[in-house]
C-alpha cells in the first residue's frame, strides 16, 4: 500500500472516530508539480489528500491560526522532519499543546515520499536527532561561505541589492510558523524601530531583525524563500544564524518540546572570542 493511500485511510479513520477534528495535508496545486494545503474535515474529503515528492511546504504554520486549538480538540497534520521540529519549538514556546497535534510524518527521498513511524511529536526524537547529525544544508553552507570570503563591502552590496527588491509584503512572515506574534515588531510605531516604507534602509532593518528573531528557531523549511515574490535568498541568512547557534552554543532548533530558547538561556562558559 502506497503512502498516499495509507495516510488517506488513516486520516479517514481519525476523522470518523472523532479523534481529530481536522486534517491538514496537501492537495493538487495549480500545476502538476505544485501542491497546496488542504483542510479536511470529513472522511469523504480525505480523497483530496495527495502525498508525493512535491509536498514540501511546512504545514505546521497553519496550527497557529488563532483559536484553532483552543477548543482542546486534536488536529492532524502532514509534516516532514522540519515541520516536526517546528511543532517542538511551538510547544516549547507555549504556542500549542503537542498532545493536540497528530502527526502524519513523512520524508522525501529521491523524489519519493516515505512514511516516518510515530504519531506524537515525542515519537520522532530519533528523526530529529538524525537530522541534527546529518548537519545543515551543504548547498546553503557553500553559498554562505562564498559570501564570507568576499569583502564586507562586497557583501553589503550583495545584500543591498537583494534587500532593495523587498516590497515589504511580509509574505515571509505570513508563511513562517515562528512568526506567531500578535503584534510584529515592524508594526510597533511607538517607537518605530523599523522603517516601514519599502526603501532599502527599512528593508535592511526588517530583514536583519527577522533573521535575528529566527536565530535558534528557524528549521530551514524554506517557506520564506519560496514565498518571497522578489526572490530574496532569505533561507541563506537564516541558515547563517542556524550555523552560528550550532557552532557557538551547540544549539539545534526544535530538538524537543521542552528545549529552552537559545537567547533566553546562557552558559557561563559560552565562547566570547570577540569581546575586548
Amino acid at each position: 500500500m502506497g503512502i498516499q493511500v495509507q495516510f488517506r485511510k488513516e486520516a479517514a479513520e481519525l476523522l470518523s472516530s472523532g479523534a481529530v477534528k481536522l486534517v491538514i495535508g496537501y492537495g493538487e496545486g495549480s500545476t502538476p508539480e505544485r501542491r497546496r494545503p488542504v483542510f479536511v474535515r470529513t472522511p469523504a474529503e480525505t480523497e483530496r489528500l495527495v502525498l508525493d515528492g512535491a509536498c514540501v511546504a511546512n504545514l505546521s504554520t497553519y496550527l497557529i491560526s488563532e483559536g484553532l486549538l483552543s477548543d482542546g480538540k486534536n488536529v492532524a497534520v502532514f509534516l516532514k522532519p522540519d515541520g516536526i521540529r517546528s511543532i517542538n519549538i511551538l510547544a516549547a514556546e507555549a504556542q500549542l499543546n503537542p498532545e493536540q497535534v497528530v502527526i502524519f510524518g513523512f520524508d522525501i527521498e529521491n523524489g519519493e515520499a516515505r512514511p516516518l513511524a510515530g504519531r506524537k511529536a515525542s515519537d520522532f526524537t530519533q528523526v530529529v536527532e538524525a537530522a541534527k547529525a546529518a548537519g545543515l544544508s551543504p548547498e546553503l553552507q557553500k553559498e554562505a561561505e562564498r559570501l564570507d570570503h568576499i569583502s564586507a563591502a562586497e557583501r553589503f552590496e550583495y545584500w543591498k541589492e537583494q534587500f532593495s527588491k523587498c516590497i515589504k509584503c511580509y509574505a515571509c512572515r505570513q508563511v513562517c510558523p515562528m512568526c506567531y506574534c500578535r503584534r510584529c515588531i515592524v508594526d510597533v510605531n511607538q517607537p518605530q524601530w523599523i522603517n516601514t516604507s519599502s526603501h532599502t534602509l527599512g528593508n535592511f532593518e526588517w530583514n536583519i531583525v527577522r533573521a535575528f528573531h529566527l536565530a535558534g528557531r528557524c528549521v530551514a523549511c524554506g517557506g520564506c524563500d519560496r514565498s518571497c515574490p522578489v526572490n530574496i535568498p532569505l533561507r541563506l541568512i537564516n541558515h547563517r544564524m542556524a550555523k552560528e547557534v550550532l557552532d557557538a552554543f551547540d544549539y539545534y532548533a526544535g530538538e524537543s518540546t521542552d528545549q529552552k530558547p537559545v537567547l533566553a538561556t546562557f552558559r557561563q562558559d559560552d565562547p566570547e572570542t570577540f569581546i575586548l
Binding site: 564586507a152 563591502a153 552590496e157 533573521a211 541568512i237 552560528e244 537567547l263 559560552d270
Partner: peptide, 20 residues
C-alpha cells in the same frame, strides 16, 4: 551572560550582511 549570547548571534548576522 544573556547579552553575550545575543551579541554573538547579532554580530555574526551583521558581519554576514556586510556590516564590518
Amino acid at each position: 551572560y544573556h547579552a553575550r549570547r545575543r551579541w554573538t548571534v547579532f554580530r555574526a548576522l551583521l558581519a554576514f550582511t556586510g556590516i564590518p
